[in-house]
Design a protein around this nucleic acid. Sequence first.
RNA 1: CGGGGUGUAGCGCAGUCUGGCUAGCGCAUCUGGUUUGGGACCAGAGGGUCGUAGGUUCGAAUCCUAUCACCCCGACCA
Length: 505
Amino acid sequence: MNKAPKTAIQPTRADDYPEWYQQVIKAADLAENSPVRGCMVIKPWGYALWENMQRVLDGMFKATGHQNAYFPLFIPMSYLEKEAEHVEGFAKECAVVTHHRLEPDGQGGLRPAGPLEEPLIVRPTSETIIGAMYAKWVQSYRDLPILINQWANVVRWELRTRLFLRTAEFLWQEGHTVHATAEEAMEETRKMLDVYADFAENYMAVPVIKGEKTAGERFPGADMTLAIEAMMQDRKALQAGTSHFLGQNFSKAQEIKFQDQSGNLAYAWTTSWGVSTRLVGALIMTHSDDDGLVLPPRLAPSHAVILPIYRDDAQRDEVLAYCRKLRSDLQSITWDGQPLRIEIDDRDLRGGEKKWYHVKRGVPLRLEVGPKDLAQDAVFVAQRDNGEQKSMPRTALLSDCITILQAMQDRLFQKALDLQIKNTVEIDNEKDFRKLFTPKNADSPEIHGGFAVCYFASEEDVAPLLQELKVTIRCLPLANVDEPPGKCFLTGKPAARRGIFAKAY
RNA sequence: CGGGGUGUAGCGCAGUCUGGCUAGCGCAUCUGGUUUGGGACCAGAGGGUCGUAGGUUCGAAUCCUAUCACCCCGACCA
């Protein structure tokens, strides 16, 4: 009878991490590939998760003075050409619209007709189109700052795609701001990075390292790029959000000028910042286990699912009535300013099948209610993250459920933080560096690596080694800004700061 | 775009090397029954132009050619 595997997801993380990731998404019904190459379909459970992220982030943006707006999907090709580095960075992955009509090809099919005078590109990011509008809107220092965000889809024609982590089309938000001074723009850049870090740690329960990107890893066209980096369970780094100080690069390219208080014409200072549906990937890879998705309660589409258990129709009615009452009692409790999200699963399925359905989808709490529980006015409570399950008096559940959810949220964060700390090492020589990033089995690499914190003198010096080991400099942690200088782990040359080195997504 | 691999039922696969009965198996689905605090069991049923297009042959899932799609490894990236 026991044909069931020991884990709901196969292979396990240890067996084959990338395949495990795909299987978790499938088992939790978050998304799947579409007929359009490289583009995914986000299914209801995955989209609900994204909507929760959107709701929280949007609130944070508003609280920091930003407003939402919407700019076009299409960008005239000439706009992209205005900022040299920007062109170089994105030209290779742009989808281009060249025609505006279809006509019959005479063989039952269609062919493009009506060539456009100037091709349009599908936005890979919107600095140029938004900048063009800002140039019109900004005349005086009184027009500044402009603090705008847009929720949108963007397209980057990627060669290799992975659900949520890298797809040809993805959903994101992009904030674009204009300021009168460099200091103010820099402050905005840092502020939004802090917002992202706050969101990642307190809502996603994903510990992150705030840092500055090196020149080689910077956003094309930026003077400075700040990012938050997270460690996934396979110890690879994932960039979870970026905030760019664009200096006057775009304002010069697009003539965003204003008259300052002394009447002089000056170029404005701009920033941009964004997070994408990639965050869903980060969430999956940080918390999920070999039984499927594990969700941080604060972002879970459902906080708890109630599973009625009964044998016959008489019991069914009684149990269901109890469950509905329990649901409405729970729904009257608020957490994070929102009512608890509770569903009852009364589908006519086998108990085990139903239970595993919700385990794989990562619902934080499973509340099982059968006739015996009814008799004791108790509920059988199972927690998704640690597998703990116990019977609780109904009244205790109602009074403690917020505590339980918050404790789970904290446990998830602490567990992820422990993993990050355990796999972050200071390295001061090439031998140890190579050892950390070289798998024992080259053909099917086991989980290895981590974050290496190393002094380095120049990107050029370490580039060949990094390329060989497939390692990148993730960032220069902001926390290390004031550290004493040291010596490059590779060349021994004097080095001002340490960087975080890791394999990355 | 370079190297490798795979396309057979909704999903996962066998069969291909060595061409030959009506193309199979597991899971899922549907029907009937038995079960019921837990990923159940028995019996039966439906579902395929074997990725696509040509070719070789008495005969092709199997051999040949072309083509498309997807996966893995490189180069590039949120």
